[in-house]
Amino acid sequence: MTDRPVIDSLGTRCPQPIIDTARFLRDQPIGTEAILLADDPATAPDISAWARMTHNHSEQLEPMKFLVRKESDY
């Protein structure tokens, strides 16, 4: 695994993981990738919905690990 920045939202409750992701990527250039760590059960559906709504990319790598990529200036 290359050195993608990690957004550690473990132990936080929805919607915090999504807020953390949005905040982090907002200041980054388009194309930036990061790893989101989150154990809240709403994370999987919501990171996917977030990506759709904000025109970014997300994919689930493991139960609590998600890859996110900035693809728009949302």
């Binding site: 929805c14 059960p41 709403a42 999987a44 559906p45 919501d46 919905a49 759709r52 709504m53």
Partner: peptide
Amino acid sequence: LEPSHVLAAMGKLTQG
């Protein structure tokens, strides 16, 4: 404790 399975099944946002 779980988000709505209906919203999740539709790929809709469950928070808020």
